[in-house]
Nucleic acid binder design. Sequence first.
DNA 1: CTCCGTAGATGACCCAAGTCACGCCCTTGT
DNA 2: ACAAGGGCGTGACTTGGGTCATCTACGGAG
Lengths: 230, 230
Amino acid sequence: MEKSLLLKRVPFFRELGENEIAALSERAVERTYSKGELLFSEGDECKGLFVVGRGAVKILKSSPSGREQSLDIQMPGTPVAELPLFDGGRYPATAQCVEDSELLFIARRDFESLVRQHPELALAVIRSLGQRLRKMVTLVEELSLKEVSQRIARRLVTLAEARGRKTPAGLEIELPFSQQEFAAQMGTVRELVSRTLGRFQSEELIAVDGRHITIRSFEALEEIAAGLKK
Amino acid sequence: MEKSLLLKRVPFFRELGENEIAALSERAVERTYSKGELLFSEGDECKGLFVVGRGAVKILKSSPSGREQSLDIQMPGTPVAELPLFDGGRYPATAQCVEDSELLFIARRDFESLVRQHPELALAVIRSLGQRLRKMVTLVEELSLKEVSQRIARRLVTLAEARGRKTPAGLEIELPFSQQEFAAQMGTVRELVSRTLGRFQSEELIAVDGRHITIRSFEALEEIAAGLKK
DNA sequence: CTCCGTAGATGACCCAAGTCACGCCCTTGT
DNA sequence: ACAAGGGCGTGACTTGGGTCATCTACGGAG
């Protein structure tokens, strides 16, 4: 059984010993979803905790007119929905698989009794909520106070820092998602992303080839992100 | 000494017994600030936890151009800055007194040792972080997917629900802050707030008299907030 | 009483960004 | 091989909302 292997990868559960992990993986149920399927919808009652094993899960808000704001994308090893699990409320947003995915599901009561036995777990939950809160604060700041081109520049910069490969031509990065998805993360629409990347390219700040982007002037992007330059 | 009285009012510390409260209030330092003073700035290192005793503290982000996005306003009895206290990071935003205020300050190490002795406190922290996170998610949704008039209508509705007084003319509410501040909370500017309230008034949905607002058609406001109507 | 300083109202203007429409390319499935 | 659909590039247009500049009303200080 590899459930326990997955559980051990979750930063969340690092504090637990072998036997707790084993006990937990007894209780955990494996579920598979295909791309596009919903784990739950905003407003649903929270039945338990999900942990991403394979694939990816997007947390999102959507408007009646069909626009979508992505709040976060959970990759393998991350928990989904620890917030409502704790405060007993409903899911504040919708969760959708963006690829075919395998998840572990841990029923609410199982998780609760686990926390009672291991209060240290609460600290891990705090860390996790804290991270999310910081992300949301940053997002609010960008949506409210920054222009779209600034947000895009900022994103390119952070992507480059996180996983850029150095080459003679510059830092190379791979966009990990479609422009549509990129736009949803930045609170704008596909067209603007396309246009802005085009503009950056014509100004020779970047070179675009499909989802493959070479950064030719990291500094200029940083200035745009900071609002010092257009 | 009334420090302990204040501490007992904090939902946060409800779990503590008499002696812990007493011990904590020994350690807590009273500080007074005048209107406009900063408690700390975004990016500062976190020295400890504040608890609002009197007055009010605004948590905000601001842009170089001078615009301001208010994230939250803390009233008496609420803690400020429990997030960086826990994850050890820096303050994610700035805190400013919006009135002359008295606060308690609890040094980081004191709080930490308290949590070690009383792990239940962690659950209280989780509740508090959770609330904030929910607020931020809602804010992101509004900034990204709703128009300004929708946000304003929604706010009037929630204010009315929370503290509206029924009168023959309709529900009456008192705006608890200036239009400037109101705008900062909704991610817009003063002028738009003024104009929108004016429009609502001319459409006879509300009657405005200074900060005193009478809601004449609650339903219409709800429809606007939901985006069903302009 | 008068003088500021702050809060609010309002009109004129401008522009970022969202919408619509279309065309192109590439992949996938039949 | 072809059709169908998804992802992307682009031009044209509209508009919400932010900026600027006044003007007025009110309230406190001197």
